[in-house]
Simulated scan of single mutants.
Amino acid sequence: MDFAAQGRATPGWDSHVHVFDGTAAVAPGHYRPVHRPLADIEALARSRGLMHLVLVQPSVYGTDNTVLLDALRASRGRHRGVVVLGPSVSDAALQEMHALGVRGVRFNLVSPVGSGGAADTSVTFLDLAPRLRALGWHVQWYPRPQDLPVISALHASSAASGIPAVLDHLAGMHAGLPADDAAWWALADLAQFGAWVKLSGWYRLQAAAPYEALDNNIRKVASLFDGRMVWGSDWPHTSFAPSALPAYAGMFEPVLRALPGRQAEQAWGDAPARLYA
């Protein structure tokens, strides 16, 4: 995929990347990231005509969003961010983040330190909900399939009214998930509430390149979320050794193969422009 070669007037988006500072402190008992600065992913994305990035707070930094915020500051408005927060964050800090381009808060239900060590992410989410709504932010969930009923119930509550859900990595709908699993019903409910899905993280979903085992699940998700899907590379692919990273172009292939051209193009063009810009 080359967004620029399609003759689009609007630059495209990579809606899920991480940046790392090799000198920054990380959560104990977790992986030690390699130095991966903003300039590296900007150059890689630009080679495909993607000029906008969504920087997602990685689990190793917990609620210390310094690396991400510094990168947004350096980008001068080109990119957007999704942070990890605790309920004690000040209104002034939220306003500063918003001015830099933050548009969401992430809850990672997969990594043991991914939500900043919060014992109950539901409580933290509900505590933050009024302020997220006032800012117009969304909540990005990194779920397992079994988490979707809880997320659905949260977003059905009056406390979460008006706060969109964005579901990481195909909402966790992995290649081994049965077609009649209860998670599909919860996912359909979330779609009815206006949730979004990220087409990303293929190697996190019990699939190996070229990820054909996910084609049917991608199509099934697309039937529920048409127009509300955004593509992300998940660069720099922390599941892999630094010397064996998957090709950036390979992250487009499942979308191009599984979805018609209109849906695929929306996922790195019009849809993220609506969600983030």
Rank of each mutant, 00 (worst) to 15 (best):
V17R: 01
G172V: 04
S88K: 12
D147F: 10
P210G: 02
R80E: 02
M173W: 08
P112I: 09
G117N: 05
A24D: 12
A119I: 08
E265C: 00
H30M: 07
M173D: 09
V56H: 08
G176T: 07
H169A: 02
R73C: 12
Y142A: 14
T63M: 03
A129R: 03
Y276L: 10
N217A: 15
A241F: 11
L132Q: 11
M229P: 00
Q146P: 07
V230A: 08
Y31H: 08
S243F: 10
R228I: 00
S223P: 07
A45Y: 01
H18I: 03
F20S: 02
E212V: 11
R8P: 05
G176N: 12
D64Q: 12
H30A: 11
R144H: 12
Q146S: 15
A186R: 04
D120H: 11
A39T: 14
T124N: 14
W184N: 13
P149I: 09
G116C: 11
V110D: 06
G176S: 06
P11G: 05
Q146V: 14
Y248P: 01
L132M: 14
A71V: 05
A156V: 01
F252S: 04
D91G: 08
V255R: 02
L245M: 14
K198F: 01
H52R: 15
D120T: 00
D234Y: 13
D234S: 08
Q206Y: 07
V26K: 10
G176V: 06
H138S: 04
V197K: 05
L135E: 08
S158R: 13
P28D: 14
R36H: 07
F225L: 00
I163W: 12
Q95S: 14
A74R: 13
A213N: 02
A207Y: 07
N217Q: 15
L205Q: 09
P33W: 06
D64M: 00
P58T: 06
G117A: 04
A134D: 15
V89M: 05
L53T: 04
S158F: 04
S161V: 07
E253A: 15
R204C: 10
G49D: 09
D91W: 04
S122D: 14
A183K: 03
D127T: 13
D14R: 06
A273S: 14
A247E: 14
T124L: 01
A195H: 01
S111R: 05
L245G: 10
P112A: 07
G116E: 09
V230G: 01
V67P: 05
V54W: 03
V56R: 06
A208L: 10
A273T: 14
H30N: 06
D168Y: 00
H18P: 03
D64I: 00
R46H: 13
G227C: 00
F125H: 08
G49E: 05
A4I: 02
V255L: 14
A119T: 10
A9N: 14
W231R: 10
R219Q: 15
D180T: 10
H237E: 06
W268S: 04
P33L: 08
Q146N: 13
P143S: 07
D180N: 13
A186H: 08
L190G: 01
T124I: 02
R80S: 15
P178I: 05
A222N: 03
F240Q: 12
P246E: 12
A191C: 02
V34K: 02
V89E: 08
V17N: 04
N216D: 14
L132F: 09
T238D: 07
